[in-house]
Design a protein around this nucleic acid. Structure first.
Lengths: 336, 336
DNA sequence: TTAATTGATGAAAGCGATTTCATTGTGATA
DNA sequence: TATCACAATGAAATCGCTTTCATCAATTAA
């Protein structure tokens, strides 16, 4: 129950801590087989568990991977519940475990918090999600701990490793699908015109070709959105296709459409983005764009490891994305 | 960029580290206002960030709250994506931040892993989710770090702090609702007959009174479930109400019912449990039982703090639960 | 005037590991 | 027999902080 220290083991066997430490880590030193056996046996018997405190101090590395999620107010204090974030956390946690590392999660509002947190723990690497470029630049110049960024919009010269997905392609695939289905007037639903959402919409436009697209920028706060849908209801009557930049918005949109007496996909086709788990449970099952957060996490951790050695190898990794066609999209019906 | 240590500050001001340390923590010692001012100014200027390595070692406490989530195979490697877990993580993270603590998340399979992990980091407290009683007992007897358990089924004598919700009441409220709506034959959907799910179903039975209830134990793995629904389809034709022990199952069930040509709620009323965010987006919006994970997290952290002082105060905290009636439940129609 | 008290600070030990450098013993070589 | 190489191990410094104990000067009480 009381902590067993290396020195306890050493003392009990009449050895020095150096020897015990070397047995634990192997390979630095030549140690007699007999000693190795005795030490290992006692470590096992006493259930020695190393103290990270000591290790941290001695070898100046913590094996902690910090995951910093921007606590954007649009989530109203529930960021970690967002399907994409939750899925990323899960994948990152799996990667960390596989690599024998530890995952510390923090929701943060400012880059300064990240810096402070990461430095105080002497973290091994960081995954930074949802902040803006300016924050990344700040970290780049004030912190020596390697970090990668999710969806960062940084170019090579900025020396930041940015792991993102091919939003444009995702949007384009949806656009092409809608065009192929004969749609001519589409609505894009987003809550802002920057970053990934901008790319998704641009992609959609490319794929949709000559079709007419109108963009609806909905309020971020859920309560305001309700009123907004109602106020703008007329716009849905004109379109036969809708592309939401997230599954959450797509599902919410479908619900609203149903309430307004419009049928999905008969009256209007709807597509989302992310392929969150409940897409296939929505009714109708939602057509969407799948991003693979497990793969993203894997790449993130790999790049983090690389950064430990070649410090300055910024660059963007674009992960592929895949259209998942389900039941919320169908051939256009004429409207007049 | 290079680490600023307390000794750097001390040296630069011609003071001892003891003095600087005392300025930082206040109140232990009488220090002249002049010195305090000078030290604080320099700490600020040099952007001193304490090293947890040193602190950990010196004061033998880490301020780390460990959250251990049982990596049950039914989640197929995606536990942290489960809506209830994600929501708990978010709430716990918020609580930890508010208390100036750090949250480390780990998915674990065995109690030994928890023990090892928690001890090596000298964690301040643990929240243990989804393990079984035997694991809790193991921790209780092998570990001196205080921990609380979610949904643990431990009685007072076991000296384990167990934070749970009133599953029976939740089930009962659904049962009563179904009875009130005139249903006579109900189906309960679960994937096991133990723990919280057992309580929920028992509660349902109590509330449903004389109505006839049949329990379906569905396979945990998604692929097998698909076949199962189909095979057992006939049972749905007999019932007019269904209560699933989780929203996930409820939504999946609704989807299957729709595919089989049954209408919800006209042909069959469906209710779930948890009130996950997408309940209100399902169609029809799902009647369910709300549990408040923010409140639960608050209590968990409070009890953890109490445990630091009075070590042995086991006991179960039962949090209230609330029926949320939406559109998936309706008065019974006669069937024959 | 001297002793006792108090206020402000320094010196050093300790926390639990790692790691460098030094030491001992043994068999082989000259 | 003296020297050397090498294998096996010990002693001690180090990491950055907290905290106890000691010191010294200035003030107050006797």
């Amino acid at each position: 129950m009381e902590r067993v220290r290396i020195s306890d083991i050493a003392e009990e066997l009449g050895l020095s801590t150096a020897t015990v430490s070397n047995v634990i880590h192997g390979k630095t030193r030549k140690i007699s087989d007999e000693t190795v056996r005795r030490v290992q046996a006692l470590l096992e018997e006493r259930q020695y568990i190393p103290s990270m405190a000591g290790i941290l101090l001695a070898q100046n590395t913590s094996r902690i991977i910090g995951v910093f999620v921007h606590d954007h107010e649009k989530y109203e204090g529930h960021v970690l519940e967002d399907a994409f974030i939750a899925s990323s956390l899960n994948a990152l946690s799996a990667e960390a475990e596989a690599a024998g590392q530890f995952m510390m999660v923090k929701r943060a509002k400012r880059a300064e918090d990240i810096l402070q947190f990461a430095s105080m723990w002497n973290m091994d690497g960081l995954v930074v999600i949802g902040f803006c470029r300016q924050d990344y630049m700040y970290l780049r110049s004030h912190m020596r701990i390697p970090f990668v960024v999710y969806d960062g919009f940084c170019d090579r010269t900025e020396r930041i490793v940015n792991i993102t997905i091919d939003n444009t392609s995702g949007g384009r695939q949806v656009g092409e699908l809608m065009r192929r289905l004969g749609h001519r007037r589409a609505l894009c639903v987003t809550d802002n015109l920057e970053g990934v959402d901008k790319e998704r919409i641009e992609g959609f436009r490319q794929g949709f070709g000559l079709g007419e697209t109108e963009v609806m920028v909905v309020p971020m706060r859920r309560e305001e959105r309700r009123a907004y849908w109602q106020r703008e209801a007329a716009r849905f009557r004109r379109a036969t296709a809708a592309f939401a930049v997230s599954d959450a918005y797509a599902v919410e949109l479908m619900q609203f459409l149903r309430e307004s007496g419009l049928k999905v996909p008969e009256d209007i086709s709807v597509a989302g983005f992310d392929d969150t788990p409940w897409c296939k449970l929505a009714s109708p099952a939602l057509t969407t764009v799948r991003q693979d957060s497990a793969q993203r996490a894997r790449v993130a951790m790999e790049r983090l490891r690389e950064l430990k050695t070649h410090a300055d190898c910024g660059g963007t990794v674009v992960m592929p994305v895949q259209l998942v066609e389900r039941d919320s999209t169908a051939p256009a019906q004429e409207k007049w």
